[in-house]
């Protein structure tokens, strides 16, 4: 009977770790407010729009002017690359125009990424045509 118990503990612990890594989109929506001086979901601002972010190569919004550094970074945006970039943009891509110290708290990054994933797949927030 010891093995199933250990398995239960392992699965429970694993599930809670996955939960933390997944992030909370509701909390992420609050964190996203920090980004609103330079970004929005649907429209380019002084930073590029976020609709269509996941799976898009870095520096690929066609009507936005990027730094050469980001163009050359060879990144495709997903949870892992966003996590690395958001922690310290200038370290992840030296020369990026995103002059921001970064979000040092891993859970906050996970929450923000969860929100971005949810919001950018929501047709009400990212209508057709805003994801290119």
């Amino acid at each position: 009977m010891k093995l199933p118990f250990a398995l239960f503990i392992g699965l429970t612990l694993g599930a809670s770790l996955c939960q933390a890594a997944d992030g909370d989109a509701g909390k992420g929506a609050q964190i996203y407010q920090r980004c609103l001086a330079c970004h929005s979901l649907e429209h380019n601002r002084s930073g590029p729009r976020h609709c269509g972010l996941f799976g898009r190569p870095a520096a690929a919004v066609p009507d936005f002017t990027y730094s050469q550094a980001l163009k050359s970074a060879g990144l495709t945006w997903d949870a892992a690359t966003l996590d690395r970039f958001l922690e310290n943009p200038l370290k992840a891509v030296p020369g990026t125009k995103m002059a921001y110290a970064g979000i040092k708290n891993g859970q906050e990054r996970a929450d923000l990424i969860a929100y971005l994933k949810q919001a950018t797949h929501d047709p009400a927030k990212c209508p057709q045509g805003s994801s290119h």
């Binding site: 407010q33 920090r34 980004c35 609103l36 001086a37 330079c38 002059a99 921001y100 110290a101 970064g102």
Partner: peptide, 8 residues
Amino acid sequence: GAVSAYLG
């Protein structure tokens, strides 16, 4: 957002 941008 501007407050956060300057904080960053």
